[in-house]
Amino acid sequence: MTDGTDFVELARIWRGPLVESVHRGTVVVANFEGRLLGSWGDAGLMTFPRSSLKPFQAMALVECGAADAFGLSDEHIAMACASHDAQPFQIGLVGDWLGRLGLGEDALVCGPALPRREADQANAFAQGGPRRIYHNCSGKHCGFLTVAKHLGAGLNYGDAAHPAQQLYLDILSDYMGRDATKLPAGRDGCGLPALAVPMRNLATAAARLGLGYSGNTARRAAAKRVLGAMAAYPDHVSGLDIATSRIVRATGGRVVVKGGAEGFVLAIVPEKGLGICIKIADGSSRAKYGVLARVLGHFGVLPVAEAEALIEQVSDPITDSTGALVGGTEIVFEKPVPTSETKATLGFWLGGVKEAFF
């Protein structure tokens, strides 16, 4: 990573009348030309977007013809972009997908896992415990498997030199405007290669993805289909009615969102030609969607009042063991000056602070 000078304060966590924690990070907004429209922190920060790169990986599935060859629906395409909760409808789609390939889940490189939700975990244990199909990246792995099988290139798609990986890197290079094969690489939690990308380049790539930017006709069509699938099936990409789904629905599908591990999130705003990248420096995810909601208001994607209300919808409440509200999240990034009092702008904890100190 880098030292703290690359980051700015983005959010504060309040408990009663005091700030208990602070989240710092970097926010970068760019257009398809690569021009920075906003940069808070170091726009050149090299970091791992992790699962936020999945839309570019899914494009390979569509571009090479593999998706059509195996009769995949847009629901499958959304699952290729997913970091899913392994809810029954998601597992059903992944199982159907493997059936279309004539493969078992042992063909997946990702390791066995459990569903994220307690109720689904109980069912998983009743059916034998952890499985590869439950891994939150199993949809992405099915995508790579499909490309590998379609290309007749062998099923070792986890190898960085595999044609399926190389096609993805070619797509990412096209959209970033730089050679992705020259970027630092590690290994992701699911066992596949993980690239480190400068935030400015990825924000540019996101803006270009939203516009279907490419000289390659099949690539432009792939971009349109992937974004359309993510907008149409936001619950597939994550889980039922969680923060990413709420943002997509609040914007009527005009914003496509893909979260990544360790506090990263990528957003694409096709109608305004914007790509947005957010990285929370400490790796926490609890503030990143609230920061994104503030960005949407700041750049006029949503009216400010709607964006501020959305912050509350995507920020988890801080409660005690009885469920009573004891604190909250304040997004301090580019805080607007309210023209009228609203629930969104006058949180209970802020009122408590004024009473305690003024």
Score class of each variant (00 low, 15 high):
G210E: 08
L18W: 11
R131W: 00
G65W: 03
A231R: 08
Y233M: 11
G41T: 06
I133H: 01
M46H: 04
R200T: 13
G263S: 12
G191D: 14
R50P: 13
A196S: 13
T47K: 10
E118A: 07
A60W: 04
D6S: 15
S238V: 15
S245Q: 10
G328L: 05
G129E: 01
A324Y: 05
K258P: 09
N201Y: 05
A222G: 04
G158M: 01
G210F: 03
L114S: 12
A67Y: 05
G25H: 06
H135D: 11
P336H: 13
L325T: 13
A180F: 01
G102N: 15
L18D: 06
A185D: 10
E355V: 10
A221M: 02
G71T: 14
L195A: 06
L296P: 14
G210H: 05
G4M: 10
V353L: 12
L169H: 02
R100C: 08
V326A: 09
V337L: 06
G44I: 08
Q166K: 03
S39P: 04
L155S: 14
R35Q: 09
A206C: 10
T181L: 00
T319V: 09
V19E: 11
V248C: 11
G38N: 09
I171W: 00
F333Q: 01
T339C: 05
A344P: 00
F348H: 15
A281N: 04
I77F: 06
A243V: 07
G273M: 08
I280P: 00
G139M: 12
E341Y: 10
V19K: 06
G273P: 07
T322C: 09
L346P: 00
A80W: 07
D120V: 08
M79R: 11
F32N: 04
L169N: 00
D320A: 10
L169W: 02
D96H: 08
V314N: 14
G228N: 12
Q127W: 05
E271D: 15
M1F: 10
L18G: 04
